[in-house]
Design a protein around this nucleic acid. Structure first.
Length: 553
DNA sequence: GTACTGGGCCAC
DNA sequence: AAACGTGGCCCAGTAC
């Protein structure tokens, strides 16, 4: 049973699969949704971010949905549905950025101005779009796979909205303590924290450059030169190679100033309210299906401040991450039983060493990462060929994906998310390299761009399939957590509060922490089966039950 | 003032 | 050791 939700003059139009179409006022919509949720429908709407927050605000939670815009994007691009009517149509309103989303710098996209020549949009009816999508799935060679992807993506949209609603526990007080400890007391605006100031004074003295400006790479380079330090750039790892007493306070300065600017007092003021951190998750932000965030920098919470995420009194954080997820995805996807076996004992890299393929764990790691990223130099590039001998199936799969990308072809994940085509400029460059007026330089450049796109497609299939695994993991975990404490509002029981590629955090009453940990593991098993059936591939998760996020790992 | 780019660095 | 994928964010510098 599904119910399509659309807006109409006078309110919200509900179109159930069977039964009458109903118009309810916007005000009555949450109550009506709550009433119908009892029958466990799948809600079908254009953008989860447009409908679900108002439901959550009225304490209405839904079990299942289809996010038409997210699904539209997948279906338009997927190789599995390339022949569908939906994919063959000219771009329309479903291919546009939804009106709520913001452009960089905070300006709103004006959807009306998207294309001046466009007719007024006549394709916005969600019922019609839903029919097209169902037809696309039904006509696909792999309806099961693509269908699972759409369900998982939509579950992700619900989870993103719920995590935003719940917020991640965040103690402004503990965060402030960390800042005071490392930087000194909060300075007046425009002033440097005292510890940064002391480091600057020390640098200036050691270099004998009283006007050294450490905040501009250009100025810093000049200042270092004036003090007799010849650096080619101001990157930390470059500076580390230089032996000079001023380098030590400089590196410390860079570290502290990063903390102050990215996650300092201003960050807390902006992103933490009522001891909750609420980033805006963007489902499917990356082409690979990985999520992004809009504001708050939730993709890059430095380890330094994670201990400020503190569970409520009587509650715990259950922090779980999938161990070596991407290489395991690679092994399972390729059906490489040797590589799967290497990971069976828990540490895949150690398993590779044990098999006699590569000498040390560290080498095994860079070689495998190199295979997935397309390393050509250093240890990764050098050692990767050893893997090709021991694990031909796995390595052939990523190599094939790279070759396809170099030719400008599409590659796809396990469930059928497909890579975009390279841009206009990329094609021009390739065409120029074969044209009559081609020069050796143009050919070199074309080859270099081709290899670049090959690295993207090589990584796409692994990163994208790992993102699918993570979506399935979370979707299953969400169901399981709800089942643990049914009939109560979800933030009063164990619930997801954070997600980062291969890691989740659940905020839970302490007495349920152990059960939650079991459910996290069980959900990982579900995810493996959803993607790979009964193939004997393990996706172990490490689980830590802690009082604050900093204690995990 | 706003828009854009590159440098640098954080996360996975 | 530092080149090899996906992001976000802050800052400085520059163009308008």
């Amino acid at each position: 049973m599904h119910i399509v939700v659309g807006s109409a003059i006078g309110g919200v139009l509900l179109t159930p699969e069977t039964g009458d179409v109903v118009l309810v006022s916007g005000e009555d919509f949450p109550a009506e949704a709550a009433r119908r949720e009892a029958e466990h429908p799948r809600w079908v709407w254009d953008d989860t971010g447009r409908w679900y927050p108002q439901l959550l605000a009225q304490r209405v939670r839904v079990e299942r949905c289809i996010d038409l815009r997210l699904c539209h994007t997948i279906l338009r691009n997927s190789e599995l549905t390339g022949e569908s009517e939906l994919a063959r149509r000219a771009p329309g309103s479903w291919d546009r950025v939804p009106v709520e989303q913001k452009a960089p710098d905070g300006a709103l996209f004006d959807v009306g101005d998207f294309d001046e020549d466009d007719e007024p949009a006549d394709d916005t009816d969600p019922v019609a779009e839903w029919s097209l999508q169902q037809a696309a799935v039904a006509g696909s060679a792999e309806p099961g796979r693509i269908g699972r992807l759409l369900a998982a993506e939509s579950a992700g949209a619900l989870i993103a909205a719920e995590m935003r609603f719940a917020g991640m526990p965040w103690s402004a007080q503990v965060h402030d303590d960390i800042l005071v400890e490392t930087l000194g007391p909060r300075p007046k605006s425009g002033e440097r924290p005292v510890k940064l100031d002391a480091l600057l004074t020390e640098m200036r003295t050691l270099l004998d450059v009283p006007d050294l400006n450490p905040d501009s790479p250009n100025e810093l380079l000049k200042g270092l030169a004036k003090g007799g330090v010849l650096a080619t750039s101001t990157r930390s790892w470059e500076l580390k190679k230089i032996k000079h007493p001023a380098i030590i306070p400089l590196l410390e300065y860079k570290k502290l100033s990063r903390l102050a600017s990215a996650n300092g007092w201003h960050w807390v003021d902006t992103w933490v309210e009522d001891d909750r951190f609420r980033p805006d998750y963007v489902v499917g932000a990356a082409a690979t299906g990985r999520w992004g965030t809009d504001g708050g920098g939730a993709l890059q919470l430095p380890k330094q401040i994670r201990s400020a995420s503190v569970a409520d009194q009587g509650w715990k954080l259950v922090v779980a991450d999938a161990a070596q997820l991407e290489p395991r995805i690679l092994a399972a996807m390729a059906g490489d039983r040797e590589m799967v076996a290497a990971g069976a004992k828990g540490d895949l890299y150690a398993g590779i060493v044990e098999s006699g393929t590569i000498d040390t764990r560290e080498h095994a790691k860079v070689a495998l990462l190199g295979a997935m990223y397309g390393a050509t130099q250093g240890d990764g590039g050098r050692l990767m060929p050893l893997l090709a001998k021991a694990y031909p199936k796995a390595i052939a799969m990523v190599e094939d994906a790279a070759r396809a990308g170099e030719k400008g072809e599409i590659v796809s994940t396990r469930l059928g998310r497909s890579s975009p085509l390279p841009g206009e400029r990329w094609r021009e460059l390739q065409a120029d390299a074969y044209g009559e007026s081609s020069s050796p330089a143009a050919a070199d450049r074309a080859r270099s761009y081709a290899r670049g796109w090959g690295r993207f497609t090589r990584n796409f299939i692994v990163q994208g399939t790992a993102a699918e695994w993570a979506l399935c993991w979370m979707a299953s975990l969400r169901r399981r957590l709800t089942a643990l404490s049914p009939n109560i509002w979800f933030t009063d029981g164990p619930h997801l509060v954070f997600f980062l590629h291969d890691e989740v955090v659940v905020h839970t009453p302490a007495e349920l922490a152990e059960v939650v940990a079991d459910e996290v593991r069980a959900a990982a098993k579900d995810a493996g089966e959803l993607l790979f059936g009964r193939l004997p591939a393990d996706f172990p998760v490490t689980v830590a039950t802690v009082d604050n996020y900093g204690q995990a790992k």
